[in-house]
């Protein structure tokens, strides 16, 4: 359980510290003026755009769904493990109580 708590704490702290950094970067990108480009003289098919201008929707979608399912699965596993440990402790204590002659 200590490992789970430590991992959770590490993830939380990492998220708390990196979120403003990421947002700073994106904010700066949003504020900067776009470089002056030559006037467009024709339409460019989507698949001919340079890679940095293509937004990978399938990858974002899959990442979102995988993250949700993995997070939920890990949480269920974490609660089940904690429950198992508590059940074992209850059984041990009840056995100790019986041995010591408590009603």
């Amino acid at each position: 359980m200590k490992t789970v708590t430590s991992t959770l704490l590490a993830v939380v702290l990492l998220a708390a510290f990196t979120a403003p950094l990421g947002a700073q970067g994106s904010g700066a990108a949003g504020q900067s003026q776009p470089p002056k480009q030559e006037q467009q003289t024709g339409f460019i098919p989507l698949d001919q755009l340079p890679p940095q201008e293509q937004l990978p929707a399938p990858r974002l979608l899959i990442a979102a769904y995988v993250f949700v399912l993995v997070a939920l699965f890990l949480y269920v596993v974490s609660v089940s493990r904690r429950l198992g440990a508590v059940h074992r402790e209850v059984q041990r204590l009840e056995a100790d109580l019986r041995k010591s002659g408590h009603p």
């Binding site: 998220a15 979120a19 990421g22 947002a23 994106s26 904010g27 990108a29 949003g30 937004l55 929707a57 974002l60 979608l61 990442a63 979102a64 993250f67 949700v68 997070a71 939920l72």
Partner: peptide, 22 residues
């Protein structure tokens, strides 16, 4: 909360062009 705060930016990156806005 973490599910919301992760899936939101993944959507926003495509829809708004940014991972996060304040």
């Amino acid at each position: 909360g973490i599910i919301t705060l992760v899936t939101g930016p993944l959507w926003a990156r495509k829809a708004w062009g940014q991972w996060w806005v304040w």
